[in-house]
Design a protein around this nucleic acid. Structure first.
Lengths: 356, 356
DNA sequence: ATGAAAGCGCTAACAT
DNA sequence: ATGTTAGCGCTTTCAT
């Protein structure tokens, strides 16, 4: 298949009548090598079409300078920002990255993890799939001392650093904001509650209700796969309720967009009849009508921090036991979808009158 | 960094008192090996924690079973569908894939190409970046006989198969549809015209105008980077024109969504004042108001076909000279954004009255 | 059905 | 500043 024989450092060495070690060192810009020699080596390398053989190098060095990145999906602003952040930091540090995506499937995540392990990545940065419930597939990494950093979708682990946002706080903020807008019956549409992000947002939601003496009504909690159809069904389900909710906190903007559309199709006015808060600050949140109030959190920064943490681990600078959890800032962005006309924002947001 | 020594086939061989060749063959399920031996080898492999070393294998075999995939971006439905298609076909054929993305930058694309080359991928599937103007960075692949298949964003090449849609036809269809809706002044917002997809769509646009005896007005052609700000500026630029367009054909749905929003903010009614056709059938096209008429084309299929073509090349089954271009079907999806009230679709779409 | 032995291309400890 | 040398772990030809 590759008929032509590869050009190796032996060929360069022969041509220049020097040893392969000198060639190898020259190619790596080793300080002990004569500048002239380096020049000659590089020149002949180019001349005879030499190409570095990564396998031979990796086999010898027992390290790949590759960092694996496992993501649960690819098509969201958030993930592409995280990837950009990771790429920036890792490439500056001389690492390449390999991206694997699980498409939200535990099985695929597992297979990919094994695959990255066999590819001998030096480290791993991962976000878990929708239905991942254990971390067994990362055991080989731990056993071999390969550092793993989890971000966003995580499980508690004493073996790895996790980089997350404070989802409980976000859920709390989102819900509190709706309460301050005068909402009394706030629904929550979210994903699998065994996944940390959704579990914590739900906790925050409940906390806000409790603090403001609103009852938690389990009919107002809908857990689904967050797809388009599920979002429509969830909305219709809420609309069939004997008494409608007056606010919905939805765990991602895409789902929120579908919900808003379905509500409008059914003659419900957003935010007047039902106020909406989404999550993620995806591009779509600014493009639909009304624009969606949402939680923003910086993907780039999350990626950069995860990568920096991993590289620190790799260099042995950092003790995982010490920095086990890193929390990134996040904030509520208020737009039209949640602003009930009768409660001006400036008053509402500082209003603690509900508290005893 | 990886303190523990790796378990190798030598360890297995020693433990069982057989040779490494037997172990190697057993692990590969070679037919000449005794079933019992195989079982024992596999058992002890598991027992002592053996892990295959890809580098040693690749170094020896001079092939990696890895296919590189170069994409211009990651965050679109289209690309994720293509990836899914590629993944399906390649994994069935026993290949792994490595995804590299250029973020629409020629420089990054170039660097990534070299990188994949050094990683010794067995083949490459690529879509070009926004500003890629030559294919020099793929030369090493051609020289070494590594097959490359381009999809969607391509340049003409006699060395590779290209998999595309008929962009000229799509541009023509989109524009003709607007004309049939009664539009007389149709603007076109698009990307870099040296990129094939945009160039061809523009050709189709012009062809439709010419065929229907409408003049091409260069003030109605806006070329930009298709980002959010550019889309807004483009819209405002059109709105400043002494006589407004009554239709706009826009080269992607995200941009179209921003344009529609900006139009609405400026009191223009879509489609009544200005009808809109987008491109790609992204999720957003169904979620904004009005829903966007767009061109749909099947990413999954494109990915599958590109991958199948590459694998056929790899196996030497296929002669690139013979199948140089593969065209995938595509179609116009008509939604509200282009439907002028006074021209019912059923009549308009079969109407050739304009023709001499 | 199994084994011996060579070698894939590179690196690095050790020598000079 | 450069060379010698011994592998890294696997596959495979040739032999038995």
């Amino acid at each position: 298949m590759n008929p032509k024989k590869d050009v190796t450092i032996y060929d360069i060495a022969k041509q220049l009548n020097i040893s392969t070690s000198t060639v190898s060192r020259a190619l790596q810009n080793h300080p002990a090598i004569n500048k002239l020699t380096k020049k000659k080596v590089i020149a002949t390398a180019k001349e005879i079409g030499y190409q570095y053989n990564t396998f031979a190098g990796n086999l010898r060095k027992k390290s790949t300078s590759i960092i694996g990145v496992m993501v649960h999906e690819l098509n969201s602003n958030f993930i592409t920002s995280v990837l950009a952040g990771i790429e920036k930091v890792t490439s500056e540090a001389g690492y390449d990255i390999i991206i694997a995506h699980s498409s939200e499937s535990y099985t695929k995540e597992s297979a990919n993890a094994l695959n990255l392990f066999h590819k001998r990545v030096d480290g791993l940065i991962a976000s878990l799939a929708y239905d991942t419930k254990n971390l067994d597939h990362y055991l080989p990494f731990h056993q071999k001392g390969i550092p793993v950093v989890f971000f966003d979708r995580v499980e508690p682990s004493d073996k790895s650093t996790v980089v997350v946002i404070d989802n409980t706080k976000c859920g709390y903020q989102a819900t509190k904001h709706l309460i301050e807008q005068g909402c009394k019956r706030i629904a929550h549409i979210t994903g699998n509650l065994s996944r940390n992000v959704y579990a914590h947002r739900f906790q925050g939601y409940k906390k806000a209700l409790t603090e403001h003496h609103l009852p938690f009504d389990k009919k107002l909690l809908i857990v689904n796969d967050l797809g388009e159809e599920a979002a429509r069904n969830a909305t219709l389900q809420l609309l069939r309720l004997p008494s409608l909710p007056d606010g919905i906190f939805i765990t991602n903007d895409f789902t929120a967009a579908v919900v808003i559309q379905t509500l409008k199709e059914n003659g419900i006015v957003v935010p007047d009849d039902i106020a909406i808060v989404g999550f993620n600050n995806d591009a779509i949140s600014k493009l639909i009508e009304p624009k969606i109030t949402t939680i923003n959190y910086p993907g780039i920064e999350m990626g950069e921090i995860a990568a920096r943490q991993l590289i620190a681990n790799l260099k042995g600078e950092e003790n995982v036991q010490l920095t086990n959890t890193i929390i990134i800032r996040s904030d509520l962005i208020i737009r039209e979808s949640s602003l009930k006309k009768h409660t001006p924002l400036s008053i509402a947001s500082n209003n603690n009158a509900n508290k005893k």
